[in-house]
């Protein structure tokens, strides 16, 4: 039965991943990403990481991808990308080559080596407790400092996001950031004077 679960989940995961890469529309890419995330969550469950599976769905599918969709919709960048042209010469063949080499090498690693290593000392303390209890115990004893650090990180990220995304008044933007040409080569000089487009 585990084989069946694995096979289905693996197919979902890989199909979703391909979907992310080849979708022209960013919304479709995001949906494919959700499929992959679900597949991974299923694989987590199959490996008895129930808690992570739930967190994966809540955090990734419920928050991160929703955030992606929000950005896509609010900015109105949901039109299809042009996938036929490639401005960087040689990027695609090189990417495919690198991808093949990377995949091959990684699979080679998996095939040629065996999993070695010993369980963390003290792992037997929490043996027998269920998954959530084990993770919780480890999180609040051994990794307490890292845990607190991540909480600080989240707060910083929230503040940073607010600062980054705060919509300032147009004149303020013009005063603070005189350089508006973000490197587009046809660089229409008029860009600087155009008011910021209002999406929302």
């Amino acid at each position: 039965m585990e084989y069946a679960v694995f096979a289905v989940a693996a197919i979902i995961v890989l199909a979703g991943a391909f979907g992310v890469v080849v979708s022209r529309n960013p919304v479709h890419a995001a949906l494919s990403l959700v499929a992959t995330l679900f597949g991974v969550a299923v694989l987590f469950v199959a490996q008895e990481a129930h808690f992570l599976a739930a967190v994966q769905v809540i955090v990734y599918a419920g928050a991160i991808v929703v955030l992606f969709l929000f950005v896509i919709m609010l900015l109105g960048v949901d039109r299809a990308d042009d996938l036929d042209t490639e401005p960087l010469i040689g990027q695609r063949p090189a990417a495919v080559l690198a991808g093949l080499a990377l995949g091959g090498a990684l699979v080679a690693v998996v095939v040629t080596s065996t999993v070695t290593g010993a369980p963390r000392s003290g792992a037997e303390d929490s043996a027998g407790a269920d998954n959530v209890t084990q993770i919780g115990r480890l999180l609040f004893t051994e990794h307490l400092f890292a845990f607190e650090a991540t909480s600080v990180l989240l707060v910083i990220a929230v503040v940073g996001a607010v600062v980054l995304a705060r919509r300032r008044r147009i004149e303020e933007i013009d005063r603070e950031e005189p350089v508006t040409d973000l490197g587009r080569d046809d660089g229409s000089a008029g860009d600087a004077d155009e008011p910021v487009e209002e999406h929302a």
């Binding site: 949906l31 739930a54 967190v55 809540i58």
Partner: peptide
């Protein structure tokens, strides 16, 4: 074993239907 988390997960999934 994570029943109540499943509830939360599903309630966050429900957003997709509306949004999409």
């Amino acid at each position: 074993p994570i029943g109540i988390l499943l509830v939360l997960a599903m309630s966050s999934i429900a957003v997709y239907g509306v949004m999409l």
